[in-house]
């Protein structure tokens, strides 16, 4: 049994590693605290110790132990804050050069995908929109993929466990995220923010494939949408 689902993104393992780092710190803290809690329970039961020792902890000498523990906690806290910051910057604050740019819109209750049309630009009249339940988002492998996240009606949250990426989509604003995937296959896209009646049925698929296969898929989309494209694309 593995703890996490299979990782397919370039930054996913940083999050996994962060989990194990924090787990190590937490385990040490847990064992020490458990000892501090349990030792007196065995050692100082009323049967063994008839009269308690009087000390109030107001003296610095006594409180010193807790100060040590708190400083240790603070140091380990800041250690993992420092350790995690790189990954945070990679995922949330990095502008990558897009190899492929796609727009994703959350709506009740499916994800709609918009590919750039023949002109290679999003938000032009020849964009190809796929708006069905359980439809697939095709992306090429080993390419920087930039997604524009939108929401049409209520809050949604774009969540692909295998990428370790989750981002709320807010009506009225566009949020950009990126990923680069390292493994082909079909993966789940879920909505992680309650969005109404069929929130739980909101499931689309992410298909990661080689550049050739991906090109073939895009070509087939163009062919299917050709009549519409000739009408709307001003260059024709």
């Amino acid at each position: 049994m593995t703890i996490f689902p299979e990782n397919i993104s370039t930054y996913g393992q940083e999050i996994d590693r962060l989990f194990y780092t924090i787990s190590a710190l937490v385990a040490v803290a847990f064992v020490i605290s458990l000892f501090v809690l349990l030792y007196p329970l065995f050692n100082n039961s009323a049967k063994r110790v008839k009269k308690a020792t009087y000390f109030t902890g107001a003296k610095r000498k006594h409180f010193r132990w807790i100060t040590f523990a708190l400083v240790a906690l603070a140091l380990s806290d800041f250690y993992f804050l420092y350790a995690e910051h790189g990954a945070w910057v990679t995922i949330e604050q990095t502008q990558v050069k897009p190899d492929f740019h796609v727009s994703i819109t959350g709506r009740q209750w499916n994800w709609a995908f918009t590919y750039p049309g023949l002109d290679g630009k999003l938000y032009t009249p020849d964009d190809i929109v796929i708006n069905e339940m359980n439809s697939e988002l095709h992306v090429p492998i080993n390419k920087n993929i930039v997604v524009d996240l939108w929401a049409k009606d209520v809050l949604h949250s774009f969540f692909v466990p295998n990428i370790r990426l989750k981002q709320d989509c807010v009506p009225g604003r566009m949020i950009q995220r990126w990923f680069k995937l390292t493994k082909t296959g079909t993966y789940d896209i879920a909505c992680a923010e309650l969005c109404g009646l069929l929130h739980g049925k909101m499931r689309n698929f992410l298909v990661v494939e080689s550049q050739e296969k991906f090109n073939g898929y895009i070509d087939s989309l163009y062919k299917k949408n050709a009549p519409a494209l000739t009408m709307t694309n001003p260059s024709n």
Partner: peptide, 29 residues
């Protein structure tokens, strides 16, 4: 995130103080 981590420190202090109360006591279960 920094604020959240910092707030764990005073509460850890309170919990440790409770545990320290047990030390040297004559504990009745």
């Amino acid at each position: 995130s920094i604020g959240t981590i910092i707030i764990s420190i005073p509460f850890a202090g309170v919990f440790l103080s409770f545990m320290a109360t047990l030390w040297g006591g004559s504990i009745r279960f």
